[in-house]
Simulated scan of single mutants.
Amino acid sequence: MSNAGAADPDSAISGSGWLKGWGQGLSQIFFQSNIWTALLILAAFVVADWRMALLVLIGCAGNTVAGRLLRADPSSVTAGLQGFCGALAGAATYSAIGGQWAAYPIALIGGALCAPVTWLVVALFTKTPLRVYGLPSTTAPFCIVATGILLSTEALHVSSGPSQTIDSAPLAFARSLLTNVSEVVLINNVWSGALILLGLFVAGWKVGLAGLLGSVVGSLCALAMGEALTETANGLAGYSGVLTAIALAVVFLKSNTVSWVLAVIGTVVTAVVTVLMHDLNAPTYTWPYILTTWVFLVIAHYIPAAKRP
């Protein structure tokens, strides 16, 4: 997940280019530009609730169009880089207020707002001394917009319903391997997690392996730190580790022994940050992954063997 600079305002995007960018906005949630991965992720949303899938597509469309209106590079639009935060904003809208009628314009507006927020975050990392580290905006715009949606729609909030109580550590661990993956997109469903994990392996075996590694390490850390078994089983303690592992092992650093070691250590740190944020009782979203990955990319800047791809 990265963002290019301004492009020629007269550059046109074909209809198929818009469609491709809209679809691949889903796969870019996991750093991939792969339409088959995107379709499997969309299927995961449909399995959870077709209304959630629709809100995700609406949010992604809003982000995609707004990103281009802000003169984003056409190649970043067609690659889905201008859509993934909006897609997540759509998922967050459903998570907060369900599928009621107000959710649809909120998802569209939230998706569109991700574009200027992305511009601001990119400016922070490219127009200040931080530019030396080449940090990505990643899902920070989504977290900012989703928090705004959550706080501004309190009167519309719906209950997520009672979750199944888990009192067995082995069962909690086994279930979390898939729900960690699905909770990246705010879904608590093992079948959705399986579809997304399959999509990651379709994108590349290293991508799938890193995602699975992050899930395993995240859950083990959660159990070791005494996180509630039900919360662990539902993926709420380990989902950020899935993103951290993929980001450090195969995306933002050249994939080698050093990057995979950093990915494991980063996933452990992500688990600690997740627990700390849960104690604050504040909206967590993917902040544990974001903060940990930024710090580790700064550290990697000073490690010769940890080269950028």
Rank of each mutant, 00 (worst) to 15 (best):
M1H: 11
N3E: 14
G5V: 00
A7Y: 02
D8K: 09
D10T: 14
S11P: 08
I13A: 07
I13K: 11
G15Y: 02
S16T: 13
L19D: 01
G21P: 05
S27V: 05
Q28D: 00
I29T: 15
W36Q: 09
A38V: 03
A38I: 03
I41T: 10
I41H: 05
I41M: 08
F45Y: 11
V46A: 11
L54F: 04
L54S: 04
L57Q: 09
I58H: 00
C60V: 08
A61W: 05
G62S: 06
G67Y: 01
A72E: 11
A72H: 10
S75D: 13
S76N: 10
S76G: 13
T78Q: 11
L81R: 12
A91Y: 07
A102N: 07
G110K: 00
L113F: 01
V121P: 15
F125N: 13
P129G: 12
L130M: 07
L130Y: 01
V132W: 00
Y133H: 00
P136N: 07
S137M: 09
T139Q: 09
F142W: 11
F142N: 12
C143K: 10
A146E: 02
A146I: 03
I149N: 05
I149K: 03
L150P: 07
E154T: 14
V158I: 13
S159Y: 08
S159F: 06
S159P: 07
G161K: 03
G161H: 05
G161R: 05
P162F: 07
Q164E: 15
Q164Y: 09
Q164C: 11
A169W: 03
L171K: 15
A174W: 03
A174N: 07
S176W: 00
L178N: 09
T179Q: 10
N180C: 14
V184E: 08
I187W: 02
W191P: 13
A194H: 14
L197R: 12
L198D: 06
L198W: 04
G199D: 01
L200M: 09
L200P: 13
V202E: 10
A203N: 05
G204T: 04
G208V: 05
A210Y: 00
G211M: 02
L212V: 05
L220K: 13
L220W: 01
L223P: 08
A224D: 02
T230W: 01
T230L: 04
A233H: 04
S240I: 08
L243C: 06
A249W: 01
V251R: 00
F252P: 13
L253V: 05
K254F: 02
K254W: 00
K254A: 11
W260H: 15
W260F: 15
V261F: 15
V261G: 14
A263M: 07
V264W: 04
V264S: 12
V264Q: 10
T267W: 00
V269G: 14
V272G: 12
V273K: 14
T274D: 08
H278Y: 12
D279K: 13
L280R: 04
N281G: 12
N281Y: 00
T284G: 08
T286M: 03
T286V: 06
P288A: 01
I290G: 00
L291W: 02
V295P: 15
V295M: 15
A300G: 10
H301T: 09
Y302R: 15
I303V: 15
